[in-house]
Amino acid sequence: MLDYTVFHTIAWPSAYSVYFFVIGIAAALFFLSALSWYRAEFKPLRASAFYVSFVLLAVGGLLLISDLSQPARFLSMINPAYLNFDSPLAWGSLNLVSFGLVSVLYFVMMNKGDEINSRRLAVIGSLLALGLPVYTGFDLTVHQHRPVWNTPLMPVLFVALSLVSGAAVASFLAKGDAKLLATLRSFMLWSAGAVAAMLVSLLGTTAYGGSAQELTFMIMTSGSMGLAFIWLGLILGTAAPIGLLLAPVGRQPIGVLAAGALILIGGMALRYAILVGPQLVHTAY
């Protein structure tokens, strides 16, 4: 431990966690809209979930571009002459652009009433949507010296976070449809359960890691990230909604909506803590 070193900033500030949040929701909402072609109870979500997904995709894209210190060079991210396929960001940018294009085509086919092509695009778009949380997870995983990030859990955790946050937003779009809300309740319950299991596992491996891991564990539990990670993310945003959904009130629309609101608070807090927390210990190295 040094007594004096120069100040080092964190590489990725909290704005990236907002991007992770909106892009995760956009992906899950597209998936729910796509599901409406195959499962009748999702039909009320077909248009509304897609529109919100598309708006969030645009917001996410703009956030990503504005976070670059050279935003005018964002097209380099899809320039085949420049792309470095060793970087998950290169795959992610292609995935993002492909998802945007498929979303536009899906919109056209859906409005034309072309069911066959809409169904095809729904499947292709859902696979690309799955790629969004997967690549954001890999963005973090590949940095081998970062505690928490450098675990195989990250891509899977981001998929679960995407699903739980997307289902939470969808519950507000369901307009009280009892059958749909019951299905979304199951989505939220299982994906929040998966998030909780992964977070507990993550905490365990981080606590018993090397010195950087141990310090990060301390920062994320009782340190400056404790409020966001433990209280807002794990307790209020994951454990409380699971408890609420399991309680009798959780089977009623009001319970599902309340759980959805908590999940959204927790989803944002978790992404923020997971993004920023593991960078803090390194600022003093």
Binding site: A11, W12, D67, L68, S69, Q70, P71, R73, F74, S76, M77, Y82, S87, L89, D139, V142, H143, R146, Q279
Partner: peptide, 12 residues
């Protein structure tokens, strides 16, 4: 001239 400022190198 090519750097876009994504800061992935800083993170890594």
């Amino acid at each position: 001239e090519r750097c876009i400022g994504c800061k992935a190198c800083m993170a890594s």
